[in-house]
Design a protein around this nucleic acid. Structure first.
Length: 489
DNA sequence: TGCTTCACG
DNA sequence: ACGTACGTGAAGCAA
C-alpha cells in the first residue's frame, strides 16, 4: 500500500488555529515565496487555453509541485512533527485514514425527495405571504422585514417599544430581544414567526433544491477536514450538519432526505458523549457514578444542585440542570447561566457554587486545565490533538477569559471528535461498501444508507464499533434508529 | 466585506 | 467597572 501524506493536514495538526492553510499562504509564510495565483494566468478566470500565458502557466504548475514537496521535506524535519509522537500519531492514525473515508462519503451523496421539498416550499411560501400582510398592516407600512435596520426603526422609533439591548450598529432585534417585547405589542411575535419560516425556506429549501443533482436526485456536501480549532469536521455546500430537527417544521425538512430504493437510513448517535468524556477526564465521582450505573445524568445533577432526592426531581428542575451541564462544558459564567435560564445572576451563582461543591472533580479539571494551558500555551485532547490558545496571555481581560473558556472546552469537544473519527475509520474497514454506505457525520452521529435485508447486523456492527472506539472509565452508549427517511429517525 | 441572525452539535 | 457559554456555515442587508 502506498504511503499517504498530506501537507495541508500536517499543517493543520501542527496548529489548527492557523487561518490560512492553502499552499500559497504557507509558502509565503514559511519560505517567503509568493506563488502565482490562478487569476494571474487566466484572464477571465476560466481554463481557456487560448487566453492562458503558457510560460507563466508552466511556472504556476511547477510551483504547486515544488512547494508541496518543499513543504513536505520541511515538515519531515520539523521537530514538532517528528519528535512529538502524539501529534504524529493523530496524523497517521486519524487524519490520513479519515481523508479516504471522507472522500468516499463525498462521492456517495444523499438522496432527496424533490416533491416533498417542493410541497413544503409552497406551504411556507403562502405562510410567509400571510404573515407579511399581517405585519405590514400592524406596522401601517411596507418594509423589509429581513432588514434589522428597518425593523429597528419600526419597533423602536415608530412603535416606541423599549430598547432591550443594542448592537454595534443599532438596535438589537435578535430572538431574545423580540421575545422580551412580546408583552408590549403583537408585532414582535409575528416577526419571530416570520423569521423562523423565512429562514427555513431560504436556507433549507430553496438552497437545498438548487444543490440537488437532477440526474442522481442527490446532494453532496463538502467535508472540511482542516478548519475547526477543536478537531471537529465542518460541512458546506450544503452544510448538512445543521439541517433542522428541533421544531416540527424543521423535522419535516429532514423527511425529504431518503434512502435509495431497497435501502434504509440508519442513524447511530453517541449518548451524552461530551459529558461522558468530561467524567473520564475529570474523574468526577458524581459523573462517573451516573454513567457507570446508567442513571439519567441531568436528573442526577438536578438532585445535587437542588440538594434533594432523585425522586423529587421535576421536569423543570431537570431542564435547569441540563442547561448547567452544558454550561460547564462551555466554561459558563454566572451571568451567562442567568441569561440562559432567565433568572437573577445571584441565583445562577448559587447554582454554580452548589454544582462545584458537589462536583469537585469537575472543579479540579477546570482549574488545572486553565493553569496548564496558561503555562504551556496550548491544550490537548485525550489522543494528543493540540490547540494553541495565545488569547490566554492577552492583556485584555475579555480576550483572556475567552481563552480560558476555550481551554476548558477544547479537550472535551476535541476528544469527542477524535473518538467518532476513529469509529468512522474502523467501521469503514468493516462494511461492504455496496450494501452499506456512510453518508453523513454530524459531530456525534453517523448516518448510513443500508440495504434492507442486512439492517439488523449492520446496526449491531455500527453500535459495537462506536461503543468500543475507546476504553474509558465510563461505558459509551450509542442509540440506533432506522427508517425510510431522516425525519422519522 | 462585515454585521446580524439563526440553523445544528 | 466591564463583558459575559464552546464549535461551525449560510442568508440577507448595508455600505
Amino acid at each position: 500500500m502506498a504511503q499517504f501524506y498530506d501537507t495541508m493536514l500536517a499543517q493543520y495538526i501542527k496548529n489548527p488555529g492557523q487561518r490560512w492553510l492553502w499552499l500559497d499562504s504557507i509558502a509565503e509564510r514559511e519560505f517567503e515565496y509568493k506563488m502565482i495565483s490562478f487569476d494571474q494566468i487566466t484572464a477571465k478566470k476560466t481554463l481557456n487555453f487560448e487566453e492562458v500565458d503558457l510560460p507563466q502557466a508552466a511556472i504556476y504548475s511547477w510551483e504547486d509541485v515544488y512547494m508541496t514537496h518543499k513543504l513536505y521535506q520541511n515538515q519531515k524535519q520539523n521537530p514538532y512533527i517528528t519528535q512529538e509522537l502524539k501529534t504524529d500519531w493523530i496524523l497517521k492514525s486519524i487524519e490520513f485514514p479519515l481523508m479516504k473515508v471522507l472522500s468516499k462519503m463525498e462521492m456517495t451523496w444523499i438522496k432527496i425527495e424533490r416533491d416533498i421539498l417542493k410541497w413544503l416550499g409552497m406551504q411556507l411560501e403562502s405562510a410567509i405571504k400571510e404573515l407579511e400582510i399581517e405585519i405590514f398592516s400592524l406596522a401601517w407600512e411596507n418594509f423589509n422585514i429581513n432588514s434589522p435596520k428597518q425593523l429597528g426603526v419600526i419597533l423602536f422609533e415608530k412603535m416606541q417599544l423599549p430598547v432591550i439591548k443594542k448592537t454595534k450598529t443599532g438596535y438589537a432585534t435578535d430572538e431574545d430581544s423580540l421575545n422580551e417585547l412580546i408583552p408590549y405589542h403583537p408585532l414582535p411575535a409575528l416577526i419571530l414567526e416570520y423569521r423562523g419560516i423565512a429562514k427555513l425556506k431560504s436556507t433549507y429549501i430553496d438552497n437545498l433544491f438548487e444543490l440537488i443533482n437532477p440526474i442522481t436526485k442527490r446532494v453532496h456536501t463538502t467535508y472540511n477536514q482542516a478548519v475547526t480549532t477543536t478537531g471537529r469536521l465542518s460541512s458546506s455546500n450544503p452544510n448538512l450538519q445543521n439541517i433542522p430537527i428541533r421544531t416540527e417544521l424543521g423535522k419535516s425538512i429532514r423527511g425529504a432526505f431518503i434512502p435509495e430504493e431497497g435501502y434504509l437510513l440508519l442513524s447511530a448517535d453517541y449518548s451524552q458523549i461530551e459529558l461522558r468524556i468530561l467524567a473520564h477526564i475529570a474523574r468526577d465521582t458524581n459523573l462517573l457514578d451516573a454513567f457507570i450505573h446508567d442513571i439519567d445524568v441531568h436528573s442526577q445533577t438536578a438532585a445535587r444542585i437542588y440538594d434533594c432526592d432523585m425522586s423529587m426531581i421535576t421536569q423543570d428542575m431537570r431542564r435547569v440542570a441540563k442547561v448547567v451541564n452544558f454550561g460547564i462544558i462551555y466554561g459558563m459564567s454566572a451571568y451567562g447561566l442567568s441569561q440562559e435560564l432567565k433568572i437573577p445572576p445571584k441565583k445562577a451563582q448559587e447554582m454554580i457554587d452548589k454544582y462545584f461543591n458537589t462536583h469537585s472533580g469537575v472543579k479540579a479539571y477546570i482549574n488545572s486545565t486553565i493553569e496548564q494551558a496558561t503555562r504551556d500555551g496550548f491544550v490537548t485532547t485525550l489522543w494528543g490533538r493540540k490547540r494553541y490558545i495565545p488569547e490566554l496571555k492577552s492583556g485584555n481581560k475579555n480576550i483572556r477569559e475567552f481563552g480560558q473558556r476555550a481551554a476548558i472546552n477544547m479537550p472535551i469537544q476535541g476528544s469527542a471528535a477524535d473518538l467518532i473519527k476513529s469509529a468512522m475509520i474502523n467501521i469503514s474497514k468493516q462494511i461492504d461498501n455496496k450494501r452499506v454506505k456512510l453518508l453523513l457525520q454530524v459531530h456525534d452521529e453517523l448516518v448510513f444508507e443500508v440495504k434492507q435485508d442486512i439492517i439488523k447486523e449492520t446496526s449491531n456492527l455500527v453500535k459495537e464499533c462506536m461503543e468500543n472506539a475507546a476504553k474509558f472509565s465510563v461505558p459509551l452508549k450509542v442509540d440506533i434508529n432506522y427508517s425510510n427517511n431522516w425525519g422519522e429517525i
